[in-house]
């Protein structure tokens, strides 16, 4: 109680910085969050390292590099640490590139869906009435569409989709949940007196939306971004596994499809397991990070263990 004023003395940070510090403290206490972040760092390193193998030897190129001496699926060796696929391509370098693709797909499609969802959510809540009704019914319609099925249909109609088309399609199907959350946040923000004060000061609608509301909903949007990343990675993996991925990139889903298509499902565990595990762990790690962030953002979710931070 008393320390509320005490901490104010030496902490001279902006509200954003304070949020970050609080977030770090909670992460520090939160096992799930720590595990998530550690795993993500590992995957990040993998994505960075993916640029190295082709430079070591062209045969390590994940798509075009073929080991001249091996033309069959081979188990791990000193030459190929995780073995090769059925035409002699290095599985490790494919796995590393897969991490890069997963980040690209996950983050960019999540980012797009967050931008769309946040804008629509704020606009719907801010203007309310008819516009709110229209936008939210539209969001409901998109939300209930089976996105994987629709994207499959589209790719059947239009042939092979490029990785960027897939990214955009995933984003277009995944904004409604974000819009709903941001809308409800904005609705409660609209009731907060500081928004009234901005109006009394004469601020225009655009200024209120971008200067006053947006920064306040951004943390929630970022939280939702981690969950969107998870779902985008899964959708892309599923598409690729079913054979509708971008044939010019290596993704983990694509690797699984190759295992399946060439009939190595039960013959080559060294080929099947790495991409499978990577997909699971990467989605898990984003999910864990999201859960930890949720705890940071929503005090009600904090357990008693963390109560001392609230009291302090």
């Amino acid at each position: 109680m008393q320390s509320k004023t005490e901490t104010g003395k030496h902490e001279r940070h902006s509200y954003r910085a304070k949020l970050l510090i609080d977030a770090w403290r909670l992460f520090h206490d939160n096992l799930i969050g720590r595990i998530g972040v550690c795993l993500l760092i590992v995957f990040g390193l993998m994505a960075l390292l993916s640029y190295i193998p082709p430079h070591v030897d062209p045969m390590y190129h994940p798509m075009t590099g073929v080991d001249p001496e091996i033309s069959y699926a081979s188990p791990p060796s000193t030459r190929h640490w995780l073995g090769t696929d059925n035409i002699g391509r290095d599985i490790l370098s494919q796995l590393l590139t897969g991490a890069r693709v997963a980040f690209l797909v996950g983050i960019s499609s999540a980012f797009i869906s967050i931008v769309i969802g946040t804008l629509i959510g704020i606009v719907a809540a801010y203007w309310g009435k008819m516009l709110d009704g229209l936008l939210m019914r539209f969001a409901d319609m998109v939300m209930v569409m089976p996105s994987l099925l629709v994207i499959l249909l589209l790719s059947v109609l239009f042939g092979q989709l490029s990785i960027w088309t897939i990214v955009i399609l995933i984003a277009l199907f995944r904004w409604p949940a974000v819009a709903r959350v941001i809308r409800s946040q904005t609705l409660s923000l609209k009731q907060r007196p500081f928004i009234d004060m901005a109006r009394v000061a004469g601020a225009s609608h655009l200024r209120i939306i971008f200067r006053h509301i947006l920064p306040n909903v951004l943390p929630m949007a970022l939280l939702y971004m981690t969950f969107r990343i998870t779902s985008a990675i899964i959708v892309e993996a599923a598409l690729s596994f079913l054979g509708f991925g971008d044939p010019n990139t290596v993704s983990w889903g694509m690797m699984l499809q190759w295992v399946w298509k060439t009939g190595h499902m039960f013959q080559a565990p060294y080929w099947l397991l790495p991409p499978g595990l990577c997909i699971s762990f990467m989605t898990l790690s984003f999910y864990m990070m999201g859960r930890a962030m949720e705890e940071v953002l929503d005090p009600r979710l904090r357990r008693v263990r963390n109560a001392k931070h609230a009291a302090a």
Partner: peptide
């Protein structure tokens, strides 16, 4: 309306809610 807003201002009730935290 904007020029009206220059002439009339308000001091709100709740000092914890009336300032934008950002």
């Amino acid at each position: 309306l904007k020029s009206f807003r220059r002439k009339i201002q308000m001091i709100p009730q709740d000092p914890y809610q009336s300032l934008n935290p950002y």
